[in-house]
Every structure is written in C-alpha cells, then in structure tokens.
Nucleic acid binder design. Structure first.
Length: 659
DNA sequence: GTTTACGCATCCCCG
DNA sequence: ATGCGTAAAC
C-alpha cells in the first residue's frame, strides 16, 4: 500500500521521567541501596530508628513504579496494622497505586491462603481459628477426657501445656526433644503429654479447628506437599518482603523459603538487637541464618539513626554493648544536642507514679502534647498504681498490651454464639454457649456438644430436648441460632440478636459489674458494624483482636489526645518525644522468671534496649527503692543489672526528694 | 450424678 | 481479677 508521502510535524511529548519519586533525594545511601536492589535475596539489618519503615514503604513504591503488578507484591509484617499503615504511606506516594499490594501477618496470610486452598488437605474452608484461650480450653477438655486431671502426681497447668505444644511447633522440634532440652523437670510426664498432644490434634482435626500454630503448620504443609499450589503462589507473589525478621521463627522462615521457590526475590528486614519474642518460639538466629537459607544474599546495614539524640543513643549503645552475640553495628545521629537521660530513684512505687505524673504535666506545660509521651513497662500490672495516679491528676491515657477486652468472659461468650453459627462443628464454642445456661454444667454441655457437632441441624436438635429443667433455655438458644443463621444478615445485626438473648444471662452471672460489661459489648457492636461478613469479623477477632485493654473502651474524644501506656512488646516500632520506663529493678526487669537462664536474660536486655530506643528527646528510667515482696514484705530494691555498666555521666542518677 | 457456691493461690510479654 | 479444688445443694 502506497503512502501519500506527506508528513506532519508535531511537538514531541514531554518524556515522562522513569520514576516520579526522587528516591536518591529522599533516602540515604544505604536506604537507597535497599530500595533499588529489587532482584534476589536481600537482608537489611536496620538499627533502631534508622528508617526501616521508610525503606520498606519506598521499596513498595519503587516496585510499583517499575511496572510490577501490585498484587504480586507481598508484605509480611508483625501486625496487620503495621502493614496497612505502610501500604497507606506507599499509596500516598503514588496516588493509590499501591492499594492492591498484599499485606498482613504470617497468620493472616495463612488464613487467606488456607480458606482458598486447604480443601486439598481435607480442611474445610469454613474452619474456625482458636485463640489462645480457646486452645487452653480444648487442652483442658482433652485432659479431663484422658483422665489426667485426677492423677496423683500434679500435672502441669493448661497454660504450661499449651506453651510447650506451641513451642514445639514454632521451633520445629518434636515434643520429646523439647521436653528433654527445655522442660527436663516435666520429663516424667512425657508419655502423658505425648498422648495429650495426639488427642488434642485429633480433636481439632475432627472439628475443623485450627489454632495459631496450625495456621502456620498447615500452610507449610500445603506448600511443601502440594507442588502445584506452591508454584502457583510463588508465581503470584514475585516480590516478598518480611518486616521484623528478628521476631520470626524457623517455621516462618521455612514458609518464606517455599514461597520464594520460583524467584528468590525476598527482602528480610530486621534488627537482631531488638529480638524480643523468643518466648513465642522466635529466634534472633533466624536473621543470622538468612544468608544460609538464601545463598548470594546481599546484606545492607542501616546505621544512621533519625530518631534519638546522641545522649540517648549513648545510653542505648551501652545497654546493648554488653550483649553476647549480634551483628555488630553502631548507631550514630546528627542530633548531637540533647538532655542527658535520667535514672530516677523514687522512694516507693507511688512516688515513682507521682514523679511520672508531675513530669508529664510539666512537659505538657512546655508544649509537648500528651500523644508525644509514653510510659513503658515490662508487664501490664506494673502500671496499675500509675493508672490510679493518672486518673487522680485527670491525665487521659490509653493502655496498650496486657489483658485485652476481647479476652474477658462476656466478650468471649458473645462471640461464641456467632461462632457456632459460622461453624456448627465448633465444639469449643458450643461448649461455652451451653455452659452459660442455668442447669447445664460441664458434663451436660459436653454430651450435648457431641450431639450438636454431629447433627445436621443443631437448632432442631436443641428443640428436641424436652423434659429437662433447662429445655426451655435450649429452645431459646435454638431460636437464636435460627435467627442469626439467616444468610443475608449483617454482622452488626447478628451480634445485636445475640446480645438481646445474652443480656439476661449477663445480668444473672455478673450481678455486680453488669454495667461495665454491657458497655464492652456495646463496643463490640461498633466493631462489628465495620464488617460485611461474619466470617471476616470472626477471623479478625482471632487474628488481630482490638488492642485496647479492659476499661479503655470508653469514648476517646479527648481534644488534646491521650498519653500512651504500653508494654514494651506492644511499643515495638513506635516512638515518642518523651519516654518513661517504669520498674527498672532486678526481679521485675529482668523479671525473676528469666534470671535463671542466660538466653532469657539476654532477651530481657534487648527488651530494655527496645524500650530506651523509643525515645526521641527525653528518656527517664525510673525505679522505686523500696518494693513489696510477697514473701519478704518491704525490701530494698536493686536497680536493673543492665544499667550497672552505664556510666553516671551518660545516665544521670537522680534522687527524688520532696520539697 | 451434676451443678453451683465458696475459699484459696496466682498473676509477664502475644498473633 | 481469674483459675483451681473441695464441699454443699439440686
């Protein structure tokens, strides 16, 4: 075909720059290296406050700008809040293009994958997730069934058993090995524990129940045994990033290894000095071993700290310098000036609390807003006295970590009713629901539960129980189940139905503090309102329960914001202008339980390191001189051994004296 | 045989 | 404040 031969000249379109974000302007050299190394295994050793989150955010944005499908990027983090926050930031850099990036915790990722693929392993997609309390309940149930509750020799408590079972999974050890190495005092019970474990596994399998560990375990089994699923997932998630790698365990590492089988594009980010979850089976060795798992790993170290002043870093560097084994790195900052951190000796716990209140009020006067301040502690109960004192001074606060309101009896009761509707074979929840009724105890609950989980229509079966003192109550329950079951109901409405039914029971069981508990349940309704389906609500309640502690569900519309109280574990990754650390006393921090074991002591040291590195400007480490001991009465305390080697020029000792 | 009420030790950190 | 064992009540 002949062309006409005439040409038109048109101004050249402005060529788009390859990248909209000016990475080299916004990141330092190491961060840039981490962000631009997009192919192959990368390990980022990120010191505290070194811009780890920023690096991950920009790397997500970079991959998307390179034209990679957001759905093929997987960001695994420690909490789902962390991943959604990072993805939100990445999205705002790139006007929403990062919204489709897959993100979450290992557990939430496992949940999603298993709902879709676990059928091939004989697990129904409607499986129920057992939280820690549930799994202890099941262990108790099975223990009673095997007759171990009536042994002459004292059998370990259910929490102990649960944590041993869990540890075995997370450390990829057999029960026998674990008992030998870590629980030698229980070796006499080895056979019974093994039998209990076997029954526990069988019990869950029959009823489509998965505990937290099963989520990881089954995901691992799926990836290992189902080649086609593994290849499909690995091809789908071509770029994998794992945050807080120092707090992952060998099982999680194995999952990452399998997921990356097609491409090895894995970036692990973490800080061995901040590994604080060994009690959950995590090991900082994981991060040390990453290069062995992925040969050819590029290691990038982030050492410039953007958070804290030099005087604070001097203290934290001293605390961690004593640690026995670590990737060596030393943090530095450009913020050379700042006040020296203080070590405050208070006469008693209450003096400690009053000092904190007073200093907080002074700082507020100086213009530091309450949300920029935090009080951190080893254990939730360490803050009880302070909470009273804060209330007395009208200082509003939220408390993070510790006992969660989701773990209270009444909230679990309400949820159990929803769970039996979602999974009629959920024996744990049936049991719980039945026990609420008058005239039904463990025995009858158990036999009814057995019938219910085997029945085609539980509601019908409940109706059929006549002639008992409690048969009217069972009929009421049947009515509730029928109502809630209607498929087109909204979770909020379903929960309201449950509460209407449960309310008289709540009044009867908790006569004294009924109003407080009723308020918690109202809070539950507002949470349920955020969900479209019952299944996602229940999965979320198990996978990421609201982190508010009991009593903090009251409205939080304080205009000037809230002071944060937090366990150190829950403070991971966060930062504040001014940070107070309570109870830096031998016996509390490190805790007595850890003092017999070197590894546990090392973890306590890292925990103090994590706490101290949260501070940007002011750091106050407090301890009471006199403390109450149940056995010995009032005793003189000794400051935490981790502070022994920090020179007084660096951490200034102060006595708290009354004017 | 079962449930319930009562008194007693115990209490870390968490998805 | 919960979680256990034991004794009284249904």
């Amino acid at each position: 075909m002949a062309r006409s031969g005439t040409y038109v000249l048109r101004p050249q379109k402005q060529r788009e720059p390859r990248f909209r974000i000016e990475y080299d302007q916004l990141l330092n050299g190491s961060q840039l290296e981490a962000v631009t190394t997009t192919e192959g295994p990368v390990l980022v050793i990120a010191g505290a406050g070194s811009g780890k989150t920023r690096t991950l955010v920009f790397r997500v944005a970079r991959l998307v700008e390179m034209g990679i499908d957001p759905r093929s990027i997987l960001l695994l983090t420690f909490t789902r809040k962390a991943s959604s926050e990072m993805l939100r930031r990445a999205s705002s850099l790139l006007d929403g293009r990062c919204d489709d990036v897959a993100g979450g915790t290992f557990h939430s990722f496992a949940n999603i994958v298993l709902r879709r693929h676990a059928k091939v392993l004989g697990i129904d997609s409607g499986f129920t997730i057992l939280d820690r309390g549930d799994n202890e309940d099941v262990i108790n149930l099975v223990r009673a069934r095997l007759g171990f509750d009536k042994k002459e020799k004292r059998f370990p408590r259910k929490q102990t058993i649960a944590s041993i079972f869990s540890m075995a999974v997370n450390k990829s050890r057999t029960l026998g090995e674990l008992l030998e190495t870590s629980y030698s005092h229980l070796i006499d019970h080895a056979d019974d524990l093994q039998a209990l474990l076997t029954s526990y596994e069988a019990y869950k399998a029959e009823r489509q129940l998965l505990d937290y560990d099963d989520l990881l375990l089954v995901l691992h089994r799926l990836l290992e045994t189902q080649e086609s699923v593994r290849d499909q997932l690995s091809r789908q998630y071509r770029y994998i990033m794992v945050d807080e790698y120092q707090d992952t365990n060998p099982l999680q590492a194995a999952i990452v290894r399998l997921l990356a089988c097609q491409h090895e594009n894995v970036m692990a980010v973490g800080d061995d000095a901040q590994s604080i979850y060994a009690f959950r089976g995590a090991s900082f060795r994981n991060i040390m071993d990453f290069p062995d798992l992925f040969p050819g790993t590029q290691i990038v170290t982030l050492e410039e700290n953007y958070r804290s002043t030099q005087p604070i870093l001097d203290v934290t560097n001293h605390i961690i310098a004593q640690a026995r084994e670590r990737y060596s790195k030393s943090l530095y900052t450009v913020k050379k000036d700042g006040e020296s951190p203080l070590l405050i000796a208070a006469e008693s716990e209450n003096f400690q609390s009053r000092f904190v209140c007073q200093r907080i009020l002074e700082l507020r006067e100086e213009g530091v807003p309450l949300p920029e301040m935090a009080v951190l502690f080893r254990s939730s109960f360490h803050a009880f006295d302070l909470e009273l004192e804060l209330t007395r001074h009208d200082i509003p606060f939220v408390k993070r970590g510790g006992f969660k309101f989701i773990e209270t009896a009444h909230v679990k009761d309400a949820l159990a009713h929803l769970r039996v509707v979602a999974n009629p074979r959920d024996a744990v929840s049936w049991h719980r629901v039945l026990l609420i009724l008058e005239g039904v105890g463990p025995r009858r609950a158990q036999s009814l539960t057995a019938e219910l989980t085997a029945s085609q229509d539980p509601a019908e079966l409940l109706d059929a129980q006549s002639g008992r003192s409690y048969s009217t109550a069972l009929r009421a329950l049947a009515g509730l189940v029928r109502n809630v079951r209607q498929a087109d109901r909204h979770p909020e409405e379903q929960l309201n139905q449950v509460l209407q039914y449960y309310d008289p029971h709540l009044k009867r069981i908790h006569r004294d503090d009924y109003p407080k508990r009723a308020k918690d349940l109202e809070h539950m309704v507002s949470i349920a309102a955020r969900y479209k389906s019952l299944e996602t609500l229940l999965a979320d309640m198990a996978l990421e329960p609201p982190s508010d502690s009991v009593g903090d569900v009251v409205a939080i519309d304080e205009p000037e914001g809230l002071l944060t109280l937090s366990t150190i574990h829950s403070a991971k990754g966060l930062e504040w202008h001014s940070v107070f650390i309570l109870w830096a006393v031998d016996g509390r921090f490190p805790s007595v339980q850890s003092m017999h074991d070197d590894e546990e002591l090392e973890e306590e040291r890292r925990l103090l390191y994590v706490a101290a590195t949260r501070a940007k400007q002011n750091l106050y480490i407090c301890y009471p001189i006199n403390m109450y001991d149940r056995a010995a009465g009032m005793v003189l305390s000794k400051p935490s051994r981790f502070l022994d080697d920090v020179p007084p020029e660096i951490l200034t000792p102060m006595d708290l004296v009354e004017e």
